[in-house]
């Protein structure tokens, strides 16, 4: 694909998404500002912080509430005719569960050094006419150097064949009929449950029926050990 062609496509795209972004900023600030956690005032409460530089948020505690009540997470809001992500396409982009996905679409070299251009689409998600799909939401938007872990895939051919076999993908377990599924994967870097489990870009098979509850860890717990108590 020539550079020229890329520019033609990406410029209107970027324009549309800046608008979408603005809308979201508007939504966040004007309508949902009461949900923001910006008031967690570190200056006043942790005086020594300055000496050590910035302390990150406690992700596991914060992320569930970050997207409280975003309409994007209402299933009624989804354009059902758009292409949907499925578990198959989800894992196709990952070497194993928890591996950073490769970038399946072309990216322009000059725009990809830092995350800003990626985040234009991937921070909040939104419809991408070009792909007739919604952009997946990144669960860790605070990490800006996207290309550190995510690289575009330029073709599918291999240099040499490999014996690598993907591990089987994790499955949440019901311990009782009807009981909430446990979280079968690590939530490190994936603390925002909603980014994969809700909203128009959520993976079809693992989409939650009740994103409006927002208090995910009240019922779903991350499994840290497979052992039963008392067993060795």
């Amino acid at each position: 694909m020539s550079k020229n062609k890329l520019e033609k496509i990406s410029f209107p795209m970027i324009f549309i998404f800046s608008l979408l972004m603005m809308t979201f900023v508007y939504v966040q600030v004007e309508v949902f500002d009461h949900f923001s956690t910006k008031d967690l005032d570190k200056k006043e409460t942790q005086k020594e912080v300055k000496e050590w530089g910035k302390i990150d948020d406690i992700k596991a505690a914060k992320q569930m509430y970050q997207y409280l009540d975003r309409p994007m997470h209402d299933n009624n809001f989804i354009d059902k005719t758009a292409r949907q992500r499925t578990l198959e396409s989800f894992y196709e982009l990952r070497a194993y569960d928890g591996a950073p996905p490769v970038i399946p679409h072309p990216v322009e070299a000059s725009l990809t050094l830092t995350g800003d251009s990626c985040l234009a689409c991937h921070e909040n998600g939104g419809f991408v006419p070009k792909f007739n799909a919604y952009a997946p939401v990144v669960p860790h938007p605070e990490k800006k150097s996207c290309r550190q872990c995510h690289n575009p895939r330029d073709g599918k051919r291999l240099f040499k064949n490999t014996n690598w076999k993907k591990n089987s993908n994790p499955r949440g377990v019901n311990h009782l009929p009807g009981s909430p599924l446990t979280i079968p994967h690590s939530i490190q870097m994936r603390e925002n449950c909603l980014s994969c489990h809700s909203g128009p870009a959520a993976v079809l098979e693992i989409r939650t029926t009740h994103p409006e509850r927002t208090n995910c860890l009240q019922c779903h717990v991350e499994i840290k050990s497979k052992k039963i108590w008392g067993e060795n």
Binding site: T182, V221, E222, I223, K224, K226, K227, I228, W229
Partner: peptide, 8 residues
């Protein structure tokens, strides 16, 4: 099991 495995 689910509770122990979450915080063992």
């Amino acid at each position: 099991p689910a509770l122990h495995q979450a915080v063992p």
